[in-house]
Simulated assay, not measured.
Amino acid sequence: MTHKIPVSVLVVIHTPELEVLVMERAGQPGFWQSVTGSVDALDEPLDQAAARELFEETGIVADGRQIALRDWNLSNVYEIYPVWRHRYAPGVTRNTEHVFSVQVPRDTIITLSPREHLQYAWLPHLAAADKCFSASNAEAILQLPAFTFL
């Protein structure tokens, strides 16, 4: 087994009205989140990892025109939950997560990866933050209004 790299991306998907897409994890029912995922290689550019994860988890293509990723130039370092540490090299306990967002129309077709997610919901941003199990994901959603209107 190849170990995961402890560098990841978080992509908050939202509408112009600040409704946020949250998805329930297939492996952890009851755990809701935005798009997240690790880089595939140490040299994978973060924006490419974010676009890849966005497509893999939702079917949304960030084309740079109508649907453009926004790099918040913000990163969070957090303790990896013990239940997931076996995915990383021995002794790795912290991950650095880089935050992105993408604005989409409310009627965007969402195609979930059944391997990763059970269902999704569009929620007002405050409700979406409350639903997320990850503190860094919730905090990013709470900061969404500031990053959306810059």
Results as ranks from 00 to 15, higher is better:
37 G>E: 01
47 D>C: 11
34 S>Y: 01
22 V>A: 06
80 I>M: 01
149 F>C: 14
63 D>H: 08
23 M>T: 05
112 L>A: 01
13 I>R: 06
37 G>P: 11
45 P>K: 00
94 R>F: 12
118 L>Q: 14
5 I>Q: 00
5 I>F: 01
111 T>P: 08
10 L>S: 13
34 S>W: 08
56 E>V: 07
62 A>L: 00
47 D>G: 08
11 V>P: 10
109 I>L: 15
94 R>I: 01
33 Q>C: 10
74 L>E: 12
15 T>P: 06
106 R>T: 09
119 Q>I: 04
131 K>L: 11
150 L>P: 08
142 L>V: 15
33 Q>R: 09
77 V>Q: 08
100 F>G: 02
99 V>R: 01
92 V>Y: 07
53 E>T: 02
13 I>H: 02
32 W>M: 00
18 L>G: 14
102 V>A: 05
57 E>Q: 15
110 I>N: 11
76 N>E: 14
137 N>T: 05
91 G>P: 05
35 V>Q: 14
30 G>P: 09
63 D>Q: 02
35 V>A: 12
57 E>F: 01
56 E>D: 02
5 I>K: 03
20 V>Y: 04
100 F>N: 03
65 R>T: 01
48 Q>R: 10
93 T>H: 04
89 A>M: 10
24 E>V: 02
48 Q>A: 01
99 V>M: 02
59 G>Q: 09
56 E>K: 07
5 I>L: 00
96 T>W: 07
26 A>D: 10
97 E>A: 03
69 L>P: 12
49 A>F: 04
96 T>H: 11
70 R>W: 10
36 T>C: 12
65 R>H: 06
34 S>A: 15
98 H>M: 09
